[in-house]
Each structure stands twice: as structure tokens, then as C-alpha cells.
Design a protein around this nucleic acid. Sequence first.
DNA 1: AACATATGAATGAATG
DNA 2: CATTCATTCATATGTT
Lengths: 173, 173
Amino acid sequence: MGEGERAAESGGFSATRAGAKCGRWNPTAEQVKVLTDLFRSGLRTPSTDQIQMISAHLSAFGKIESKNVFYWFQNHKARERHHKKRRRGPRDEEDDDGDHQKARSRCLASCTKGKQDAFWQRQERETETLELFPLKSCSSDEEKVMSMRSELWGRPFLDAARDPPLDLRLSFI
Amino acid sequence: MGEGERAAESGGFSATRAGAKCGRWNPTAEQVKVLTDLFRSGLRTPSTDQIQMISAHLSAFGKIESKNVFYWFQNHKARERHHKKRRRGPRDEEDDDGDHQKARSRCLASCTKGKQDAFWQRQERETETLELFPLKSCSSDEEKVMSMRSELWGRPFLDAARDPPLDLRLSFI
DNA sequence: AACATATGAATGAATG
DNA sequence: CATTCATTCATATGTT
């Protein structure tokens, strides 16, 4: 935030200065104003329709697409949350040099997830006798029913070792 | 930025950057190529066996797990589906998608924008604000559907600078 | 210019 | 299959 006003508009039809470069959307001050207002009003994850409406309204101030609105809310929400965490009082929290915010993230939540193995961890030995014991049990057995829509394209037990990478295209469809 | 973690793509492609930090899978260019190729070939929801095989093949290009393949197809399908809003003639099956490889090597994908249309792009009607595309395309033809689903937003407001969009705040929350 | 920061854009991962 | 969260990449901009 801070310099929300990139360069302000020069009056009439400024639209997108930077946008003229095919690059990314550069919101105008008015657009940011409205978006921020909506956000502060409690809107966090607008639905598709909301996005459409907001985008339509904001197009009055310059070129804008629906995805811009979507991204804006996503980013704003995520960023607001991560900034909240970084707020340490007066030099407490032995944070590093007190600058890098990306240092340690929620990595643990992603790493430690020894969670339930989904179906993609198919075990070959399933051919044996029934050995389908849910190791964890008690918990929700994550059985992805999966469409199983394979049209019997067969299982050409292709050899994945010495193959050109493109030839497998013919194996699946 | 990071601590120079991204300096691994000097060579051909990012090697084992995914597992460097508990992070997520970072597909290589070849992997993306194969996956995209499979997708374009018609594969939408690979079965467990297919996932296994694809993963096995793709492991030749770098570290990969079955779940990565699974998620990749899920995401790709979901994000490609909403761009499926094209209501054009029966022809034009150009699902040109093979340009969305960033490969993490260079900033080549600045304007490429593989157009992984997501749901926020449902019925983007491409407001006629300022059609200023100096570069080649950078825009998806799919966006010009100009759905007239709402005459409310269908008006061509180009100079609605005086229109206070504050009232829409009450409409959403 | 280099550097730092803010932020738009993209996508992997996960959940319902 | 949809919706959302998390993380990263890329770039515009401001500061030194």
C-alpha cells in the first residue's frame, strides 16, 4: 500500500498507462479505492458474480478484467494475513534482522503433513490377498472413488525406461 | 526476494529445486511439455494407473510424485474449463495452450500469458475501455464472447467517471 | 544504477 | 468437479 496512487490520473482518460504495455493491470486510484472499500466492508472472497459486477463497475475508471478483481482480492487477503503475523511489538520476538518476511513460512504445515496417502499412492501388491487395512483407521478413510472412467485403453505396461518422452502420448488415449 | 534459491535455473532447467525446501513440486519444462501434450491429446482425468505411468515417465526429467500429476490435471482441467465459455461455431478447436511454459528460466513469459483462464473469466465481455494492445496478441480470443447476459452492465460507459460506485458496497455484503 | 518494497499474476496443493 | 489457500514469480515503483 502506501503509494497506492501510482501517478494519479491526469484528468480525462488516463486509463492505464502501464497497461498500455501489455503488461499487467495497473489499477487506478479510484479502482483501488473501491476495492479497498469493499474489502474493508467485509468482502473477502467475492463470488464469480460479484467479481463480474465489481469489474464492470470498475471498468469505468479504466481497463480492467474480472481476473484482476479476483487476483486483487486473493492477494489482498493473503497479504493482509501475512502482515498480521509479522507485527511484532517493540523489538520483541527474536525475529531475524527484522526484515525478511518470507523467512520461515508455514512450511511446517506442508512438510509435516505425513497425512493420509491418497489414492495416487497405489500399491502394487494389491493383487495379493485382501490387505486393505486402513493403517490409521478410525479416521476418515480418504477413498477417492475416482471416476474410473478408463475406457479400457488397456495396460500396455509400457516400459518407462528407455523411451522417448513423446511416445507415451499414444499410450493413453 | 529469496536467498538466491532461484539461481538454479542456469543450466538447462531447474533441477531438483522442488525438494530443496520442503516446497512444492516445480515441474521442469519437459514435464510440463509432456503433461500439456497429454492434456491436449484428450486426457482429462487420468486414472490411478495412468497417473502412475505418467509419473514414472516424468520422473526421468526430475523429481516428481504421483500426486503432482494428479493435481496438475485437476488444476489444468479446472482452469481450462472456465475458459471453455466460448460459444462460437463448431469449429475453431484451437486450444492453443502450448505456450504457457514458463520453465522458470527467464522472463520470457512476460506477455505470453498462457491464458490459463480460470473461473473469474467466465463471461468476460472485454469492456471497450481502451483497446490498446501494441504487442502481438496477448489476448485470448475467447474473451470476446460479449455475453449479453446482463443489460445492466452492458452499457458502454466510457466516461462514467462521475458515477459513484460506492453504492455497490451494499450490494455485496 | 542498485536496492527494497509493493503488488499483479500464476500455479501447486488442498479441501468440500 | 468447485472453490480456496499458500507460495512463488515478475514487474512497477519508490528510495538510497
